[in-house]
């Protein structure tokens, strides 16, 4: 019997701040929603995240940032994904991100930004609706 296609998502925490509680919680929420979540831990560089997405054949990359590095890190991840030909990987972001930054991030190719307090069901639904269909 062929298995159900599972959504595979990388949850990564770029930047140097040492809190991963939020990212860990997100990982659990996605798993609870039936996804396979590769949790990569703290202090991930964009290169590490993209290489991980490549090897894991991930459908989604979820980035969480609290330290204000999102304006560099998020677009850089998108850019590297494109360089590797992984254009169809959905990139979403979360954490503490000023509203004013969101348009620019979206322009850079981040599909959506979820601020603190976004209902988790909303995030899960967004991913399910926008994830690639892998042929």
């Amino acid at each position: 019997m062929t298995q159900d296609r599972k959504i595979k998502i990388i949850v990564a925490k770029p930047g140097l701040d040492g809190h991963d509680r939020g990212a860990k919680l997100l990982a659990r929420i996605f798993a609870e929603a039936g996804m396979e979540v590769v949790y990569t831990g703290l202090r991930q560089t964009p290169e590490m995240i993209v290489e991980t997405a490549l090897q894991e054949d991930a459908d989604v990359v979820g980035l969480s940032s609290l330290s204000g590095v999102h304006m560099y890190f998020f677009p850089r991840v998108v850019e590297l994904l494109r360089e590797k030909g992984l254009d169809d990987v959905l990139v979403v972001g979360g954490g503490i991100i000023p509203k004013d930054d969101i348009p620019e991030l979206k322009k850079a190719g981040v599909a959506e930004i979820f601020g603190p307090g976004t209902p988790t069901a909303e995030i899960v639904e967004f991913i399910k609706k926008n994830v690639r269909t892998r042929d």
Partner: peptide, 26 residues
């Protein structure tokens, strides 16, 4: 119950992530 999974082993292998001589699959 949910069919989902948290695959956390890579956390301990971060430095191998960008080594072209290593391929990790969870």
């Amino acid at each position: 119950f949910t069919g989902g999974a948290v695959l956390g082993d890579r956390v301990r292998m971060s430095r191998l992530a960008v080594d072209p001589g290593v391929f990790i699959r969870s």
